[in-house]
């Protein structure tokens, strides 16, 4: 019973964090048509941001404003210098953001070195939940992520900006013809996407090994989620995240980490082969 509860909590935690990591990629790919190959590198930037804050002797929570600022600046610069020239040229954005990913990796490697780093944040202890001790940090994170998704969902449905974004996604030419500044909106969307990735990096930083190549894993697992869940809906994103996280957690526990990776990769290839639009396709 206790084992079951722990496993379920682990599964919920893995799903929640994965969903947070995917969100930015899904937004940028789903709304702007840009497969941001440097998505994982923004998660990495978030984690390194937390490291910098720690090295400066500040409280862990200062990492949040610091990383947000960092991601806004870097995201703005990248959108301005590269991405905005390439909307509707998907292959070129793939190449450019791939180059960007290499650039960010190598830049971080040149500054911080190639070796593993970690955050020595003493996390709050454990909490009694349904008869098991579970790390409080994880529970808080699950709650915050759920709250974050709910508020984004409601905001997107109710707000004017949400409606403008929908207009831009469905018909960019018409949207700009009726006075929506699509260039501005696209830039904000891009920056918002990379900021969520950066925040995910901060949230995960105390629990993972931090190194210049950590982004690749996040890029790939996010991509697996999109393949399985399908593009363009929150249900798809959450279902995809739970399928991928569930498969990974289960197979990793039963066989090995590599086994879990093989399982999700095989699942993604099968989806691309048989059901290329995922479980929840927007059309």
């Amino acid at each position: 019973m206790e084992l079951l509860v722990v496993n379920i909590l682990n599964f919920v935690f893995a799903t929640a964090t994965l969903a947070l990591v995917v969100l930015g990629l899904a937004i940028i790919f789903g709304m702007l048509g840009v497969m941001n190959m440097a998505h994982g590198e923004f998660v990495m930037l978030g984690a390194y941001g937390a490291l910098v804050v720690q090295n400066a002797g500040l409280h862990f929570l200062f990492a949040i404003p610091f990383v947000l600022l960092l991601c806004i600046i870097v995201g703005w610069f990248i959108e301005w210098s590269i991405i905005r020239h390439l909307y509707r040229r998907p292959f070129d954005t793939l190449l450019a953001t791939w180059g960007l990913a290499i650039l960010l990796r190598k830049g971080i490697e040149a500054i911080f070195g190639r070796d593993y780093k970690s955050i020595d944040q003493t996390l709050p202890g454990t909490v009694q939940l349904m008869g098991v001790d579970y790390p409080a940090y994880r529970l808080v994170l699950i709650g915050l992520i759920a709250l974050f998704f709910l508020s984004i969902f409601l905001w997107y449905r109710k707000s004017n900006t949400g409606a403008r974004i929908k207009a831009m996604v469905t018909n960019p030419a018409l949207a700009s013809a009726v006075g929506i500044d699509t260039r501005h909106l696209a830039r904000l969307t891009f920056i918002f996407g990379v900021c969520t990735a950066g925040l995910a990096g901060v949230a995960l930083a105390p629990m993972v090994r931090i190194d210049p190549f950590m982004g690749l894993d996040y890029l790939l697992s996010s991509f697996f989620v999109l393949v399985v869940g399908g593009l363009g809906s929150l249900e798809g994103l959450l279902t995809g995240a739970s399928v991928i996280a569930g498969t990974d957690v289960t197979v990793s526990a039963l066989i090995s980490k590599t086994g879990g990776y093989i399982a999700v990769l095989t699942l993604s290839i099968l989806f691309l082969w048989l059901r290329p639009n995922g479980l929840f396709s927007s059309r």
Binding site: M35, F91, L94, L219, L220, F223, V227, I262, L265, L272
Partner: peptide, 16 residues
């Protein structure tokens, strides 16, 4: 077409 899916799968295979 030249969608990103193929590129990402090959990347994942190499990491595997």
């Amino acid at each position: 077409g030249s969608g990103p899916f193929f590129s990402l799968i090959t990347l994942a295979l190499s990491i595997l």
